[in-house]
Write a protein that binds this DNA or RNA. Sequence first.
DNA 1: GTCCAGGGAGCAG
DNA 2: CTGCTCCATGGA
Length: 258
Amino acid sequence: MQSIKTQDFHLQHTLDSGQVFTYNVEGEGYRIIDGAYSFFVQQKGDVLFYEGVDEPFLIHYFRLDEDHSQVIEELQKHKQLKEAVTAYRGLRIIRQDPFQCTMGFLCSQNSNIPRIKKNMQYFVDRFGNGVFPKAGTILSNLTQARLGYREQYIVETNKQVNETFFRSLEGMSYPQAKERLMELPGVGPKVADCILLFSLDHLTSFPVDVWMINVMKELFPSCRKKTPPQIAAFAQRKFGNYAGYAQQYLYHWKRMQN
DNA sequence: GTCCAGGGAGCAG
DNA sequence: CTGCTCCATGGA
């Protein structure tokens, strides 16, 4: 077991904030699957213990290379964010495997997190031999997965993507990559924004779901008569490069209230 | 039983 | 372009 010292990092808030679905409690820590990797992590105070990946991977995955105190400072300039940021300080936006992230949020539409986790576990067990399957390989034998109407989106998207596709997205701007992602069946503005934020490093992305509609309307009265895309645009104007973090803190904070 | 969930596609206006 | 309906399923 290796370890790394962290600052302003909270493993549980990070994992439980609905951005990643392929992890499970194991002992006193968690086992996480990301792409071809399966690894164990456990946090004790500021120290993160890990096994199964190397240090550069871990730093990249949890964004430990970022000065998170600066993110906090920036977010706290907005009084509406203070409570959420204080309560869940250390919530990092993960850098996930893009294909895995795409599958997760294709499963997410009109669903709930426990169910999405089950869907993703099925992909791992049935196609991945313990890790996440490769892009373009989730094509058949999906009846047992109980995906409902999302099954056709999974299959059709897998017919259209491979590893090169996701690599090409990495070179694109936010609007370019979003437009390209939305050409995939089952990927609309919300799912695209989640993929862009959680796997493609676009921290200006601001995914708006039911929870975000509600929390934004509570905190910012000017959002009360806005549509979801208008709320996203409002937040991106207001928070700029910190919009993604604002979104994730607010989302987790709001959900933990219920 | 009923309501809701990290929405998107298809269609009418 | 916006607004409405339907979608299949399980968790609460």
